[in-house]
């Protein structure tokens, strides 16, 4: 299988889907002539031209709305936010229009659109450019929220998202763009709504997604040396959540730690933990623990920022907690 960077896998997904369907177009800031702020759209403008790869002014609300309007009448736009932090400027369009349109119109208009872009605490970007908004978007019925952690899923999930008839919030991670991995050639789709058991284990279930998968796997590996068998699940789709895969694992291990690059209060883990508690409370041998970003705005200072992240040490500590190994 070819080895591709996460960035190139995304590029390949868009190129293949645009080749397949003329209704698919890419719009956003610097996506065309500049080849994308993070070079995800490298070469697409040259290949598909200005009709289908469209640079916009810095008007997130405007071009998000244009995308939605065009989707209501049959196009399949990919709207790139240079970073998802900027989607906050367009949030009315996403939440009021994209998420609600089908419902409000009694099923007459659907919005097959992908909003995609980078996200996460990418390093020294400070409070305004380090937002992780997946919990906010996952809150809203009508939206699909997808966050790939690997190059293969970056491609497979983006292709599925473009083909989805519903609005998809497709959140990439800036620090993953250079991560390489095996990516199947051609038309291989990763299904939306399916988590991936990345590592099997029997003692504890570790739920995570996006960049945090890397540290979570490292923590699992470290504990394997101490005889702890951790099962690692990459959620991949945050809404709709693949509850079956999660519950199957928790029923097996009886313990769970949720790891996310997100604030703790009302975060993804909070919602997922609640669903586990409601469904399989009697299978739990310990309270579910969560490893999150610390509850403060994101500072510019490198060390302060690093101290907030879910590090391997912090993950290991919480795993030991649920295994009662800290006493």
């Amino acid at each position: 299988m070819p080895i591709l960077a996460y960035r190139d896998a995304l590029n390949q997904a868009m190129a293949e889907e645009m080749e397949r369907d003329d209704n698919v177009y890419l719009m956003g800031e610097e996506v065309a002539e500049y080849n994308g702020a993070y070079k995800v759209s490298q070469g697409l403008w040259e290949r598909f031209g200005s009709r289908r790869v469209i640079d916009t002014p810095i008007s997130e609300e405007g071009f998000a709305g244009i995308g939605i309007g065009s989707a209501m009448v049959g196009l399949r736009p990919i709207i790139e936010f240079m970073t998802f932090s900027f989607s906050l400027v367009a949030i009315d369009q996403i939440l009021n229009n994209a998420a609600n349109m089908r419902y409000m119109s009694g099923g007459q208009f659907s919005v097959p659109i992908v909003f995609r872009g980078s996200s996460g605490m990418a390093g020294c970007l400070a409070a305004t450019h380090s937002h992780r908004l997946e919990a906010i978007y996952s809150h809203f019925p009508g939206l699909t929220v997808v966050m790939p952690a690997t190059a293969a899923d970056a491609k497979g999930l983006l292709k599925s998202s473009i083909r989805s008839d519903d609005p998809v919030i497709f959140i990439e991670h800036e620090n993953l763009y250079g991560e390489k991995g095996e990516v199947p050639d051609g038309d291989v789709l990763t299904p939306i709504g399916k988590a991936n058991v990345v590592r099997e284990g029997s003692d504890v279930t570790l739920l995570t997604y996006s960049r945090s998968l890397i540290n979570t796997l490292a923590a699992a590996e470290q504990l394997a040396g101490e005889g702890v068998s951790a099962e690692v699940i990459d959620l991949r789709t945050l809404r709709p959540l693949d509850l079956d895969t999660i519950l199957t694992s928790v029923v097996k291990t009886h313990r769970c730690v949720i790891i996310e690059e997100n604030w703790p209060y009302c975060g993804i883990g909070a919602g997922v933990a609640d669903r586990i508690y409601q469904k399989v409370f009697d299978e739990l041998d310990a309270p579910i623990r969560r490893v999150t970003v610390k509850d403060a705005p994101i500072p510019y200072n490198r060390n302060l920022e690093a101290s907030m992240l879910p590090t391997v040490d912090r993950i290991v500590a919480k795993i030991n907690d649920v295994l009662y190994r800290n006493a």
């Binding site: 009697d282 299978e283 006493a327």
Partner: peptide, 22 residues
């Protein structure tokens, strides 16, 4: 823990009689 209660119940053991290590 919920699991401990479940196991104790199905084993017919009074949970209150078990010393806890957690």
């Amino acid at each position: 823990s919920p699991l401990a209660r479940k196991i104790a119940e199905s084993a017919g053991v009074d949970i209150a009689s078990i010393p806890g290590s957690g």
